[in-house]
Design a protein around this nucleic acid. Structure first.
Lengths: 141, 141
DNA sequence: GGCGATATGTTATTTAGTTACATCCGCGCT
DNA sequence: AGCGCGGATGTAACTAAATAACATATCGCC
């Protein structure tokens, strides 16, 4: 690998490492959330062999808000909206039928949680909001 | 064990099985959340030997709202308020310094999430709200 | 060129949760 | 009493998720 990884066809940010691009690419092409081991399986042909390689990439990607971790699934999704980190806390609606995840931002919810935190003397650094249920499409079907 | 387990000194509900009582008791006495394996370690002297015994008890307890799972910790806490299941969705504030978890109910948050769900055609069955941060006590110290 | 920070590769290990299967116990029924 | 059923238990083996430890390579920069 003397050749730089730059020049790939799907570029979200120009300074991703090769592994980070691979992982983000896999997430972007996936229909739903993928676990670290799902990712590993899909990327074995691209040279990834150990869980740590995936976890390291995921750490960086989630840090930068390019991917999100779904806690209740131990899985990850590609960020749906490049501007989401500007929008404070994010929520996820997870369909238990089709497995798809919808990402949403509700400033009102965020504000309410902030209000509670202030009142309780709590200083939040990370917020997790996850809804499990059935999405509209599956409801109709 | 011909003798019924009823008559224990800490009774939350009269129809818990022995294993369920053991697990709930351990959670109740703990300072913070416990993982299934933490519970297993603490209950080995009481006869629990396999993870499954703990997981089965936890399933029943969480179903009934007597215990809660903290998704972002893969751990469990005793329900702080017997009436919490009446109060719709619950949130948790998790202190990353002392590890303690505070349970709270914010009807306003619940309503906002309901509003978003309706608008999005999503039917939620379970809601997870978890704040990571620093609690008031740790802030002061 | 040399140096420090960061990224990688690899093996082994720990922690979390499930599958499969046998047994046991309480309880209603005849 | 004896039968049968559903739920709870016990145990072993296994899959899945995440991390520890250590060696190597690469990049940016002075």
């Amino acid at each position: 690998m003397t050749r730089s990884h730059k020049g790939h066809d799907h570029v979200w940010a120009d300074d991703l490492t090769r592994n980070q691009e691979l992982v983000l690419g896999a997430l972007a092409h996936a229909e739903g959330p993928l676990s670290a081991y799902d990712l590993l399986d899909r990327l074995r042909d691209d040279g990834l062999r150990a869980p740590l390689q995936v976890y390291r990439a995921l750490d960086k990607l989630t840090e930068r808000g390019l991917a999100h971790r779904i806690e209740s699934l131990n899985a990850f999704v590609c960020c749906a909206d490049a501007r989401c980190h500007a929008a404070g806390s994010i929520g996820f609606a997870i369909c238990e039928r089709c497995g798809r995840v919808e990402e949403f931002a509700e400033p009102a919810v965020e504000q309410q949680l902030q209000r509670w935190s202030r009142q309780a003397g709590f200083t939040p650094t990370r917020v997790t909001i996850e809804l499990r249920g059935v999405c509209g499409a599956c409801q109709a079907a």
